[in-house]
Design a protein around this nucleic acid. Structure first.
Lengths: 233, 233
DNA sequence: TCAAAAGTGTTTGGGTTACACCCATGA
DNA sequence: TCATGGGTGTAACCCAAACACTTTTGA
């Protein structure tokens, strides 16, 4: 290392995971209650410092597991936040990652370390105060999700393997914070021929049961590959 | 600082600037020739380490000025690159920023420090080998530019204040790497009522001179504000 | 008068919007 | 039989795509 470089290697990097889930018509984010300084006892995104010898994506997976118990969650980088005063312990630059998961698969997240006391889903419309600049991070992630969900079939990542068209519509409505016209929404979705009718209907609902559909990422990828298919809501 | 935190504060952060320019129908990127270890003598993005007490955006501006002489260039974060082995001096995580400038205003960039020997524009179709993982960074930036340019009026940032419709079309064609149909392109642009006819024509061209137009970001912002105007190419 | 790019209109098809009623089920 | 959400068709409109010739200038 050049002598003049020494002064620069004094920074820490952290990762913060924004995990989106969807349950009963509500878009949710997973938060933890911090157990240590700083912001002890406050809600925050599941995040922690990255070891100097550790890849950032790996750190994101590790930290997410330690703080919430979630494993094998694919994630994508959102943005890096690095203002000088964002962390009381020193200069900490954080890289935010977001993931979309089937919340039903991870209904009861729980910390695996003493750094968090609790992990809990919050509706994005009823978020508590959060530590650090995590409010900014959550907002940036929601914006990104709103942009992406219109041009990539990522909404399906939030739904169980079999879902109704109304589930899907409610998902889009809650992400985009709008109301969609039922007939047109269904026509648009069905015209893309992306869904497989599972030949099954809902059970135990007090009204006409809806048909269940599934989405296959593999088939979608083939469509894109072979015919340049473009997803658009 | 908690004692257990010490181990983490050993990382360096750098910034890399991807400066796009446009000249004579070609989309260009500004590179520097490095003058110091590592990668001495090789072409690279204008980038350098961030001081532990310095905001990242500020560092991006400072580093850009020092290495190329460019000042007051608005920039936007693209992505952060942080693989463990990307820098031979130690763990260095880099935050990439991209900017679009009127290349004619900065025709002859030149370094202000001994860290670079030269600064030079390269067509994105004829890039030299570049240091570090800068190839990945440039590719990520081009992808982002291609996505953004279709939904935001950022193309005008690359053109001089007065430009012809053919200039604009050539710009879009070189960014998107496609061929556009002249009549439809003009119709679409003009239908948005975003351009002001300057009442002037080209001079000194060996063919029918084209009319010159200008774009006002302020007027555009007002349109968006007042009528929810949506830019779309 | 020639070369070179500027400039322009119309038709067609597909997609988006808007809109209202009947259907199947459990309680 | 009632309440509840599931499920469907059609007309009007707008936008995108395709396509070829005339105009203006300098050389």
């Amino acid at each position: 290392m050049l002598p003049e470089s020494q002064a620069f290697f004094k920074v820490a990097v952290s990762v913060d995971n924004i995990i989106f889930g969807f349950d009963r018509g509500k878009l949710n984010v997973l938060l933890i209650k911090r157990a240590k300084f700083p912001y002890e006892g406050e809600w925050a995104l599941p995040g922690y410092l990255v070891f100097p010898e550790e890849d950032i994506e790996e750190a994101a997976d590790r930290v997410l597991y330690e703080l919430t118990g979630l494993k094998n969650v694919p994630s994508e980088q959102v943005k890096t936040f690095g203002s000088v005063e964002r962390h009381p312990e020193g200069r900490v630059i954080t890289v935010a990652y977001y993931s979309l998961i089937k919340q039903s698969d991870y209904a009861d997240p729980a910390p695996r370390t003493s750094y968090a006391r609790e992990a809990k889903w919050f509706s994005i419309n009823q978020l508590p105060a959060v530590a650090f600049d995590h409010k900014d991070i959550i907002e940036a992630s929601i914006s990104r999700l709103q942009r992406r969900v219109r041009t990539q079939p990522i909404g399906f990542d939030l739904l169980p393997p079999k879902f109704t068209l109304s589930d899907l519509q409610a998902l889009y409505e809650s992400i985009l914070n709008t109301v969609l016209e039922k007939r047109n929404f269904r026509k648009k979705i069905m015209s893309m021929s992306l869904l497989t009718d599972e030949g099954v209907t809902q059970e135990g609902v007090a009204h006409r049961p809806a048909r269940l559909f599934s989405f296959s990422k593999t088939e979608y990828d083939q469509l894109v590959e072979s015919e340049g298919f473009v997803f658009k809501i």
